[in-house]
Design a protein around this nucleic acid. Structure first.
Lengths: 127, 127
DNA sequence: GCCGATACATAGACTTGCTATATATCGACG
DNA sequence: CGTCGATATATAGCAAGTCTATGTATCGGC
């Protein structure tokens, strides 16, 4: 297995991303409507390559969010493969705010729990 | 305080805790050796009730961490049911630091992604 | 004796996210 | 013209993480 291409770290275990993909996707749609492929790219771009959602992960989530009436879609069939544009509903925007605040609250809590560890070894400094 | 029993919010979905239990458990053991029941209580106490790990979740994780040589156990059979004390190994401490830093890095990234949402609606105001 | 707290353990189910695969259009390259 | 890569959506099957429910065992209070 020669790794000529940049490896995507498989987000299977110990990955802090688990459980927050819904939130991230909603937040990407908060700015403006986008279609799936754009969401994928925007997310990867905005996170500096830290968040990379696979297509097989993304589309099922979009379907689920639409079934929950948190997002709404319409097809665009001008050229090429065809694009399904998604936008937030009012309920989706409320959910986004609520989940974001809940995450923030949790993150502060966890940050405090981890502070002894993070303070004593803030980074592998070359000192 | 009208309620007799404090309800534990079931952490089934949409909960940001998912995916970080290993890390939390390692961090609790960083201070000093503890046995399972103590870990459970310490975690709930330190987080102000925000993190409550069920016994059926905790013990499998402890077994997994021990199988990975990240923690080490020894039985204490003085009285009562018997207690299994756990402590971090050197590898466990390294893993803790590494995972904590990884989480922190991720949390900063996510915080930035969510900043438009969190800034525009910092708290649920009744408007 | 029974109940609740302490204390550890396992089984089964459910959610989440990944990999692999399929479909479809288009431009580039040979 | 055929294949490859990028664009673009979709589904199936699997693995991992966590929950609920249950079982075992000791002890103190009523």
């Amino acid at each position: 297995m020669a790794d000529k291409t940049a490896e995507k770290p498989a987000r299977t275990q110990g990955d802090p991303l688990r459980g927050n993909l819904d939130l991230l996707i909603l937040s990407v749609l908060a700015g403006e409507p986008r279609y799936g492929y754009l969401i994928q790219q925007k997310l990867e771009e905005d996170s500096g390559g830290m968040v990379s959602v696979q297509a097989g992960t993304l589309y099922p989530i979009l379907h689920k969010l639409e079934a929950e009436r948190l997002i709404r879609s319409r097809w665009e069939r001008t050229s090429g493969r065809g694009r399904k544009w998604y936008e937030l509903t009012a309920a989706g925007r409320r959910r986004l705010v609520q989940q974001a605040q809940q995450w923030d609250e949790y993150a502060r809590c966890l940050r405090k729990l981890l502070s002894p560890v993070l303070d004593s070894a803030p980074r592998p400094a070359e000192a």
